[in-house]
Design a protein around this nucleic acid. Structure first.
Length: 646
RNA sequence: GCUGAUGUAGCUCAGGCGGUAGAGCACUUCCUUGGUAAGGAAGAGGUCAUGGGUUCGAGUCCCAUCAUCAGCUCCA
């Protein structure tokens, strides 16, 4: 039998393993190899016998697949420790995730921080035992019997849901047995460094209808240094958390008696959002959008037409008794669509009116469940650049493309274009109640959208069950510092609501037709976008977005008058400037401005005041130079006008 | 909504086993200093998240509520 490995073909005995081969050809690096990828892409243990000649790949911690094996074994190691310390615990599942692993357990009592320490200690002692995971397979029947005997109801449930004919693989690690497809490390002693990072609850099989299990998250590395570096990276990310720096730098705050998800935007946060809103409205006007201003609420009658009453009621704030059919009941708007449609409906429309592009800087209200709020990223009242485009079928592709281009234009300006991914969000065929319209319409609109996406040529992933209730979406996704992904921008194709609202146009042929409606945001929700910007720039927003762009500071009172003059010149140029005339040491003033992430500092002493110059420093602390003050004003003005990412 | 943690001055945190609140930084005033981070003096700041309960007495113990954080679920 021949195995091709590391670029060479080796003659080996029948059924020998890659591990055996590596021991011969690369003995000094042998311990680096964790598992094997076969020619057909399947993974197996390092010492699994290979059945036929083929090209194989030995996976190390450097490859994602190798890391996953490492994390997965670490997860089992943790489960072993838990079972040793708390034998009554029932096992659910324990997969590898992006930067570590978790295992879900069912146990009456919650684990405590002290328990985690105990578990880590037990894991250490297990690592010392040099346990070699042993794989074997059982028939479905035997497997169920085995797991029933072991008292593992979740495992039994898992097996019952697996295909009938598949033999089930198990791993024996010391006295610990687990149902598992593998592969696993050749030896648990490879797991030299690990840390249990957090405790959490998680629903069995991800459904809130099921029991909540106890989840323990952890991470593991081959060396202590790599683990320490990883933990440092996490700490670093947390320092960028908008929820921390946004409060520290006074962009926003919350008040317990106002309520969850209702942040107060402080002057700095409000300023950034104002800059963005004005900019977006102006840019959209240039691109043929018409601004609307529509009500924040409507009677229930409207939501019945739009479908919100039946499909989105839980997400709305309702005023009045919703159960009383006679009463006048209002609800705050969770979306702008039905309101903006009224603009279209204001008079008869012809194909000549299309495409009609409407935009609105819109306040929306959504009654999110209490545990879902997060800083400025997930709130109950937010402001979104929302727009609706009514167009003919021929215009859909061009208009859709225009929406995507506009979104990409804003992303690039914000410097976030490299941080997003695209998701094609489809409906869930098995959960039709969540949506309006018939399957054929959904099929058509999804195919149309996929065709356009492929035409535009953007890379995207597909996601079932993520569509809006009225149509499929292109979602532009972004991750926060904790690695949690959220939708930033969305463009949707809607073949349904026009008909519901009786929106028609007279076509060239004199026929009445329903327009296709695109729902879109261009920059997303301003609060969320601000949060992402704060995280992206660790609070040091690009000059054009900084609430304060320049601070003029003096060394002695003798230069105060000139400083005020410079400040006035900056303001005259349309820049956001302020003076720091306090009687403080200049080093202290500079440092304070740096901590506030102010982009430019203009320092003025006797010499500068006499020469009518300023010494310019940027927020990194670099001395940009001493120059006539007009030149300094022009310098900042340039950074502002060119919207440079600095 | 669920699981868990947390809540003391603007911020970061101390406050054994219940006896009416403390530090550093920040803030205010004055003095001093004056070119790259905090020199001196004085002062002001707290219904200890809120509401109940136990107790002669609660920041401390118990219960409930609210908020904040992480995760799950859900979503822009």
């Amino acid at each position: 039998m021949k195995l091709e490995l590391l670029g060479k073909v080796h003659e080996v005995a029948e059924n020998s393993s890659v591990g055996d081969l590596l021991k011969n050809i690369d003995p000094e690096n042998f311990k680096k190899y964790l598992a094997v990828r076969l020619e057909d892409g399947t993974l197996c243990d390092l010492f699994a016998p290979i059945e036929k000649s083929q090209k194989v790949e030995a996976l190390t911690f450097q490859e994602e697949a190798g890391r996953k094996v490492f994390f997965h074994s670490a997860s089992h190691l943790m489960a072993m420790a838990v079972k040793k310390l708390f034998p009554e615990t029932k096992l659910a599942i324990g997969p590898a995730i992006e930067n570590g692993f978790y295992y879900d357990f069912d146990r009456e009592e919650a684990f405590t921080a002290e328990d985690l320490e105990k578990i880590e200690k037990e894991m250490k002692s297990l690592v010392g035992k040099s346990i070699r995971p042993i794989r074997f397979t059982l028939s479905r029947h035997e497997a169920i019997a085995q797991m029933k005997q072991a008292g593992e109801p979740y495992k039994v449930e898992l097996i019952e849901d697996l295909p009938e004919d598949e033999p089930l693989s198990f791993y024996q690690m010391d006295d610990f047995l687990d149902l598992c497809v593998g592969p696993h490390l050749p030896n648990l002693s490879y797991i030299k460094a690990f840390k249990l990072t957090q405790l959490a609850g998680a629903y069995w099989r991800g459904s809130e209808k099921n029991k909540m299990l106890r989840r323990i998250y952890g991470t593991a590395y081959p060396t202590k240094e790599e683990l320490a570096a990883h933990l440092d990276r996490i700490e670093d990310a947390k320092r960028r958390d908008h929820n921390k720096i946004g409060r520290e730098l006074e962009y926003f705050t919350t008040v317990d008696y106002i309520g969850q998800g209702l942040p107060i935007l402080l002057p700095k946060g409000a300023k950034v959002i104002q800059i963005l809103e004005r900019f977006v409205e102006d840019e959209e006007e240039r691109r043929g959008y018409q601004l609307t201003k529509t009500p924040f609420m409507a009677k229930r009658d409207m939501y019945k037409i739009s479908g919100h009453w039946d499909h989105y009621r839980d997400g709305m704030f309702i005023m009045g008794n919703a159960d009383d059919e006679e009463a006048e009941v209002f609800a705050l708007r969770p979306m702008t669509c039905p309101f903006q449609f009224q603009v279209y409906l204001n008079r008869t429309r012809s194909y000549r009116d299309l495409p009609m592009r409407l935009n609105e800087t819109s306040k929306l209200f959504r009654n999110e469940s209490s545990g879902e709020m997060h800083g400025l990223i997930r709130v109950r009242q937010f402001t979104i650049s929302e727009g609706h485009l009514a167009c003919t079928p021929e215009q859909v592709e061009g208009e859709f493309r225009g929406c995507v281009e506009l979104a990409q234009y804003f992303l690039k300006l914000l410097g976030l274009d490299g941080d997003v991914s695209y998701r094609f969000s489809k409906w869930d065929e098995n959960n039709k109640d969540k949506y309006i319209g018939n399957p054929q319409d959904w099929e058509n609109s999804q195919n149309e959208m996929r065709r356009i996406l492929d035409d535009i040529g953007i890379q995207y992933t597909e996601a079932e069950g993520e569509a809006a209730f009225y149509g499929p979406k292109l979602d532009i996704q972004i991750k926060n510092v904790h690695g949690k992904e959220d939708t930033m921008i969305t463009v949707q194709i809607d073949f349904q609501l026009a008909e519901r609202f009786g929106m028609v146009y007279t076509d060239k042929d004199g026929e009445k037709k329903f327009p296709i409606v695109l729902h879109r945001t261009s920059i997303g929700c301003y609060e969320r976008t601000l949060a992402l910007l704060l995280e992206k720039y660790a609070g040091a927003l690009p000059t054009w977005l900084s609430p304060t762009q320049v601070r003029v500071m003096t060394i002695t009172e003798r230069s105060d008058a000139f400083a005020k003059e410079v400040e006035a010149a900056l303001k005259q140029a349309g820049l956001r400037a302020e003076c720091d005339l306090r009687n403080e040491k200049i080093g202290f003033k500079v440092r304070e401005a740096q901590m506030e992430k102010i982009p430019y500092m203009l320092v003025i002493g006797d010499r500068e005041a006499e020469e009518r110059t300023v010494t310019v420093r940027n927020r990194k602390g670099d001395n940009v130079g001493t120059m006539p003050f007009e030149q300094a004003v022009a310098l900042v003005k340039k950074a502002n006008d060119e919207k440079v990412i600095d």
